[in-house]
Simulated assay, not measured.
Amino acid sequence: MSREAAEAVLTRIGQGTDADFPLFEAALACALHDDPDRDPAPALVLAREAGERLAERLQSESPEEAVAEALAGDLRLSGDVTTYDHPDNADVIAIARRRLGLPVGLGIFYLHAARTAGLALHGIDFPGHFLLRIESEAGPLALDPFGEGRVVLPVELSRRALRTGLMPDVAARLDLLMAPVTDRAVLIRLQNNIFARAQQAQDWPRAERSALRRALLNPADHRPWLDVAAAREGQGALAGALQALAQAQTLDGGATIAARAARERVRLRLN
């Protein structure tokens, strides 16, 4: 798949509804958009095996046990604790090859397997560390894909929330800490991770690609275009940065002040 073809896929998916959002297809298109010169077959095979293994284990195990045993036990998916910031950890093709990744990158395989097996599993936009929510007989449980799918107890959730800087009254609210998010939001969070790491490394082409993917996946949001503009400015592509800022202003009047100031700064650099 070429980069242009991947953009076409992401455009189509972005224009669809949250209810019909094809998470794994979109994640694979994101990976190929970042680096088209790769074979997606290993990721497709792993995704299929994950659904099959989970369906088998659900016949004799509780949902939370089946998820952990199928994805982390059978298929050896685990968090990369030694090279956490490596770009491969946020790419489903590379994750399939290495069996290592970031929490949200691993979570995409967990969520896809659950969708295939008919299991209710959702992402949690937990601060600082992506988690999964699964329904059990005792109520909702949090699972950590980075920690081999293990259950995170409520007291540990609150402790982690406090470490991220949340106020104690918020950190004690499990209904807030475990609020489910859409699959679209999960994939956008992954692209945000990629953008942040690329920006820190001043890898502006990669930063631009990740920001553009966010813009395609959520076409009503002006904020990705501000990041596209920043990445283009980092590359010296000032005319392209102005185009992205204009798109941000078109999408949301609330972006007008920030985009106008940025456009004026870029315009002055052009003169």
Rank of each mutant, 00 (worst) to 15 (best):
F130P: 02
C30S: 06
T83D: 15
V67D: 13
G79K: 04
D39E: 05
R99E: 00
R115H: 11
V92H: 00
Q59F: 08
L54H: 03
R76N: 12
Y84V: 10
V81M: 04
E65K: 09
G107E: 06
L58S: 06
G105L: 07
V45H: 07
L44K: 10
E56C: 00
E56Q: 08
D88F: 08
G123I: 05
A55S: 04
E56L: 08
R57K: 14
F130N: 01
S60Q: 12
I108E: 14
A41I: 11
T116S: 10
G101D: 04
V67F: 06
R97D: 11
H86K: 09
L46Q: 08
V45Y: 08
A50S: 05
V81D: 11
A117T: 13
F130V: 07
I93L: 11
D125Q: 10
L111Y: 02
R98V: 05
H112I: 04
L121S: 12
G51I: 06
I93E: 07
A55V: 02
L121I: 09
L71C: 00
R76A: 15
I124P: 09
G128S: 09
G51E: 12
S60E: 10
L54D: 03
L44M: 09
R38T: 11
G101R: 02
F109E: 03
P87M: 13
P40W: 05
F126P: 08
E52S: 05
I95F: 06
P42W: 13
A55L: 11
P103E: 06
A55F: 05
A31H: 12
G51Y: 00
S136L: 07
A90D: 11
L131W: 13
G123E: 09
R48A: 12
R53Y: 01
A43H: 11
D85Y: 10
L111M: 07
P87C: 05
R57C: 01
V67G: 09
A55N: 00
A55G: 13
A90S: 14
H86R: 09
R115N: 12
Y110M: 02
E52I: 04
E65D: 11
R38D: 10
D88L: 08
L77S: 10
A55R: 12
A50L: 01
L44Y: 02
D85I: 08
H122E: 13
I124H: 10
D85N: 14
N89R: 04
H122P: 00
R48G: 05
P127F: 01
I108L: 14
R57G: 06
A113N: 04
A70F: 00
